[in-house]
Design a protein around this nucleic acid. Structure first.
Lengths: 338, 338
DNA sequence: CCCTGGCACTCACCGCAGGCGAGTGCCAAC
DNA sequence: GTTGGCACTCGCCTGCGGTGAGTGCCAGGG
């Protein structure tokens, strides 16, 4: 177990390194933080921290930089979440309040997060599978061709064509529409399959085929996970990364383009509370020198999707976590209102 | 007027520079292209080309590189559009044929373009203002709250909430829905305002307020230009740019995030045929060292939106133009079929 | 008049050596 | 356990020739 002072030293190293982006030495540490001990003592502590794998030196005779393990300890034990100031909170709220529809909410959230954290922001569209149904609409486009429109409580709209096995009259259509809505409106997506199971039985024999087709189409829409979409922003912030450019930035850009990767990443993060994945903790290789801070957000108390930021492992964790948490909170509010 | 051989020299310079990314000298030119003259002669020609502003030397005693003006001449007079090979065309078609809906078409197109050109691809969603209406749907969410859903022939769906001045009965709603669709279904967006002008008059006095509200909401949706969306991909290709990194890449990433800028850029490009904007020809400063190749695409003979790529001025113009044109063509076909 | 070979010149790039200084590890003393 | 001292390491910067690709100019030949 590390002594209290050694933890303080580690904290100071992380803070200084994040600030200056340069390896930090024992002398500079004692000057900038009043630890009450001499550089020599700090050197001993640093040697111990290095033995434990919390810090490392890029070259002999250079200062120390935190390792992923060091950051991990810092995040878990040494740093809190820095709350947003009142003006910042107001700014967030004002910025998000102007949104006119779901796309706009997501777009604004991405911009906001990117600006606040000066890093790459990732926002997942509210997931279908965890939302509730606001309305199901059926439109007749041709005698045997319907359009199914699904509207969620988060304002998302999914549509899909349905080719019917047999022509389907307007009366039957209205009937189906009414029955469908009375059963599923306001219900959670996960409950829908159970709720509509026996619906075909209420219809005439000749219509049952069509009803079944519509229903399976509806269910497909519900489970279609690959419809999970993302919005990304603030990629220009990647240029602030470091000096060793192309090598660092390239795999990150590639990862960001692979939405599958990002979705997986967000999916793996814990469902409740904030998750911080540091460097090699990210399964995807391209993100081995970045950290991902993510958190769920949702309209009720329940998370329907996630948002977060991707940045260098050398990031201001307390500030970033504060911003991510605050934004998630306000987005949740906005969604609940609309 | 430049002699034929000088044009050949310019063409050779552009080709070599694009290939090697290094300033090209007189000796190397005569070796790689059989111009039939000696290096000394080429030097004279180069001096002339430099006087005219088509090429420049980064430093005294270095080779020449083309200027924006040089590229312009190259694109206009010296280079054709390199057609895709048959296998490439098949690959494009196969890749796009798998798309299941509009989002997917656009997403696939972006990926495809980015891969083919190894540059940043930009695809505009089919614009509302030039498409036709497939269906308008009205849903009653609450007594005085409706949802308006607009479905276009390109498969795009726009929705919008409407708060009514007075409660609106189901019968009136069905009536409005029917009348609205009979007037606008299949018509072009630009014609809609004229077609629905006198619609409120057909309704009872107490409903007219609501009908007007719905109609103005519909018209708003139609003209709302900022709803024009873009999809961008292949940003990782920016890392292939050059050696002088952060400086070059940053403003480009910033420009790409500003969808407004890109939309303006695409909008300014000619409506028909392919447009190439080279370096400083782009109004936006951040793109002064890039070229934008864009072209309209559409389901009929008519362009409903644009797509293109953004890359360094030092790009393979014939190849890029060929890819952009081919992709636009196939996307048009796909849209027409669906 | 245009092309060509020759020639002197420029200047970016490379590798090398030397000096500087931040930072370290170790040790003896408190 | 802490401290000051000290020798050592090594990355970084700077200055310095050497090298070579490339140029501009000029005089001579088709």
């Amino acid at each position: 177990m590390l002594s209290e002072r050694r933890l303080q030293v580690l904290r100071a190293i992380v803070q200084d390194y994040v600030g200056t982006e340069e390896p930090v030495g024992s002398k500079a540490l004692t000057e900038r933080h009043n630890l009450g001990v001499s550089p020599a003592t700090v050197r001993n502590d640093m040697a111990a921290l290095e033995d434990e794998g919390y810090i490392a030196q890029p070259h002999t005779s250079a200062g120390r930089i935190p390792t992923d393990k060091g950051y991990r300890l810092f995040v878990d034990k040494l740093a809190g979440v820095k709350p947003m100031t009142a003006p910042e909170r107001r700014a967030i709220q004002n910025f998000l309040d102007g949104a006119v529809d779901l796309d706009d909410v997501v777009a604004r959230t991405v911009r906001l997060l990117a600006q606040l954290t000066r890093q790459v922001a990732v926002v997942q569209y509210p997931s279908l599978t965890r939302s509730t149904v606001r309305h199901v609409e059926l439109l007749s486009l041709a005698p045997a061709r319907l359009m199914l429109v699904l509207i969620t409580d988060t304002g998302r709209v999914e549509q899909r064509m349905v080719d019917c096995p047999a022509p389907f009259g307007e009366t039957s259509l209205a009937d189906l529409r009414a029955r469908l809505n009375s059963r599923v409106a306001g219900r959670r997506f996960t409950d829908v399959p159970r709720l509509v199971e026996d619906l075909p039985e209420a219809f005439d024999v000749e219509d049952r085929g069509t009803v079944s087709t519509v229903l399976s189409s509806l269910l497909e829409t519900l489970v279609e996970e690959n419809e999970e979409r993302l919005m990304i922003g603030g990629t220009a912030n990647l240029t602030r990364f470091g000096h060793d450019f192309p090598l660092t930035i390239r795999p990150v850009l590639e990862a960001l383009e692979e939405q599958v990767v990002l979705l997986k990443l967000l999916g793996e993060a814990g469902d409740s509370g904030m998750t911080v994945r540091i460097g090699h903790e990210n399964a995807y290789e391209g993100l081995n020198s970045t950290s991902v801070v993510s958190v769920g957000y949702g309209s009720g108390g329940e998370a329907v999707a996630k948002l977060g930021v991707v940045g260098p492992t050398r990031m201001d964790y307390p500030g970033t976590m504060g911003a991510v948490r605050a934004v998630a909170r306000y987005v949740g509010q906005i969604l609940a209102e609309s």
